[in-house]
Amino acid sequence: MTVFLQNLVNALQWGSFYALIAIGYSMVYSILMLFNFAHGDVFMTGAYIGCGIALLLVGLGSAGILVLPGWLVLVLTLLLAMVVTACLGMFIERVGYRPLRDAPRASAAITGLMIGIILETGNLILLGAQRVKFPALIQPVTYELGGVFVTNQKIMIVIVALGLALALHQFIRRTRWGMAMRAMAFDYAVVPLMGVPINRIAALTFALGSGLAAAAGILFGMAYPVLDPYMGIVFGWKSFVAAILGGRGSILGATLAGFLLGFIEIFVAMVFPSTLRDFIAYSIILLILVFRPYGLFGEPYSVRLRL
């Protein structure tokens, strides 16, 4: 039982990473009919941006210029990195995807792959091959609850991830911008007739998704401090799986599917040798998709593309 609970805690942590990245995939896919295959690398870039900001703030602290408590450095790092990465997402949309809005979907998909490669190699050119280490911002504290060990960091990761997912869900349910996003997910072509500037909605979609990916990058950097330029690839693919498993355009679905992915991976590893982990885990997910081809929570949408 304690082993189970211990693994549950780890599954929640990994699920947090997957969920935050999957949400961005899911939003862009449902609103713009686009698989943004650069998204995993946006997560990677967000982690590096966060790392840079954190190092800067820590450096300012140790030089005595701006001494801030660790938790405040973390909050500032999260906020600033999310904003900067959101701008990167909007830039990618503007130069990479908007010109291809009416192009065949395959062209847009390979655009994403190319942007991903550019981000990875750009990172290598900029920083060289040396590994970058994410600074420790909060003092680790380990709590023991009936034999289960939980660190304050894991608790924080799960709370931040759930909080962001919930905030986004509310934004999409309650604001007129969110309403426009839901309308675009249903029937893209009619939205301009409502006086809605769809380019701004597209930019917003990329900004939100990229901001969440940056948060995932920073949380990941807190838990596994060594960053590398290719860390976004596997994460990207797995989160993409979670996005599709969650169902088209469903924030809740993408979040839950992200956590489900975390659970399946961790619990498979609990039973089988870890070399078999992904083999078995993704066979299970393949089976789920065979029985629920629209994912867990797919929203309905119009099949008409043009007016």
Partner: peptide, 14 residues
């Protein structure tokens, strides 16, 4: 071409 996933009021507000 209504937004069938939105409510009547949401369609009008959008």
């Amino acid at each position: 071409r209504l937004f069938e996933n939105l409510t009547v009021l949401e369609n009008l507000r959008l």
